[in-house]
Lab assay of single mutants.
Amino acid sequence: MSIQHFRVALIPFFAAFCLPVFAHPETLVKVKDAEDQLGARVGYIELDLNSGKILESFRPEERFPMMSTFKVLLCGAVLSRVDAGQEQLGRRIHYSQNDLVEYSPVTEKHLTDGMTVRELCSAAITMSDNTAANLLLTTIGGPKELTAFLHNMGDHVTRLDRWEPELNEAIPNDERDTTMPAAMATTLRKLLTGELLTLASRQQLIDWMEADKVAGPLLRSALPAGWFIADKSGAGERGSRGIIAALGPDGKPSRIVVIYTTGSQATMDERNRQIAEIGASLIKHW
């Protein structure tokens, strides 16, 4: 067993022997301040990774656009098919120029040779490549099948209805392509620590998230040296922004954090800054 596999296998073990965790309302004060600064709703939840206990939450059962955070769930569904012998990570998928959609920095470079399922998941999570996500959605049967996968996990809230990039439209009061912070946090925890996926697939999923290259201005910008984070960000229309993450000190994750916002007129930089400040408060009061 590799060191990384050992780390993920012992996530519940280490967490069980940690000192009790206590909620700190100071972080919620910052979440509410972010709402004021952005002029928009902000949803927040913080779960203990081992027990699933909610440590703090704000608007945990209000719907927010998922945006690209759905790509972690998508690759979880792909990995479940791999575990069941219905898919192979090494299978190569070929596609054409007509398949390319807006923001496809990886797939646009491989029109000639195609990409493997493993490479597509890596591109979808680490670079948020939209064509990679659409190609992977095709392998599982489309958005409705991802929703069905989530329902089978016990998540009857999260739903995907459309493809990239239309799913980022974020129309107010439109339930399409949305989740709730509580539902997303619980589902992410199941994917990373539950028995739904094999140990190898859980490790692969967290490795992809740990290698995320496009979430630097968010929670990662607030992390002290030595902290662990595996995350996936999302951005959408109407001032929408979000991030889902597993993080913790001492090089291992111990909490799940989900943050979503929508309806702001603020710039992307300002949305990023507010999420980073929430992260800084979380870490300060850990």
Rank of each mutant, 00 (worst) to 15 (best):
S254C: 13
F149K: 11
L197D: 00
A77I: 11
T147A: 07
V101T: 11
A215H: 05
F58G: 05
T267D: 11
L282R: 01
E164F: 01
F58Y: 13
R91S: 12
Q204A: 06
V257E: 01
R91Q: 15
Y95T: 04
D212L: 02
A170I: 09
G226T: 09
D161Q: 06
P105E: 11
V82L: 08
L120F: 04
S80W: 15
K109F: 08
D48T: 05
D250W: 06
E169N: 09
A124V: 15
H24W: 08
A123Y: 03
A225W: 12
P217V: 13
F70I: 15
A280I: 14
T267V: 10
P217C: 14
G279R: 02
R91D: 09
M66H: 07
L79W: 00
E270K: 07
A200I: 11
K53L: 13
G76I: 06
S96W: 09
H94C: 09
A235M: 10
D174L: 03
M184F: 08
E26D: 10
E46G: 06
I45R: 04
M115C: 09
E270L: 08
F58V: 15
N98K: 08
M67W: 00
A245I: 02
D269A: 13
L136D: 00
I140G: 05
A185W: 00
C121R: 02
K53R: 14
K284G: 11
R189N: 07
I243S: 02
I93Y: 09
E62W: 07
T186Q: 15
R241T: 08
D161P: 02
G39Q: 13
W208F: 08
F58N: 14
A225L: 07
G141S: 14
E35K: 03
G242L: 02
P25I: 11
E270M: 05
P224E: 08
P172G: 09
D212V: 05
M209A: 04
G279P: 01
M153W: 07
L219S: 04
A246Y: 07
M127L: 12
N130Q: 04
C121H: 01
G76C: 11
L38G: 08
G141R: 12
L188T: 07
D99K: 09
M67T: 11
L38P: 07
S80E: 06
L282P: 01
T193D: 10
M153T: 08
S122C: 11
S104E: 01
I275E: 02
C121D: 03
L79N: 00
R92L: 10
L73V: 09
P249H: 09
P172F: 10
I140H: 04
L192D: 02
E26H: 15
F70A: 15
V42S: 03
S254H: 09
T107P: 01
V214G: 12
A84Q: 13
Y44H: 04
S264D: 04
A276G: 11
V258L: 07
G142E: 08
V82I: 12
Q97V: 12
L89S: 12
R118N: 12
L247A: 06
R162C: 14
E210L: 12
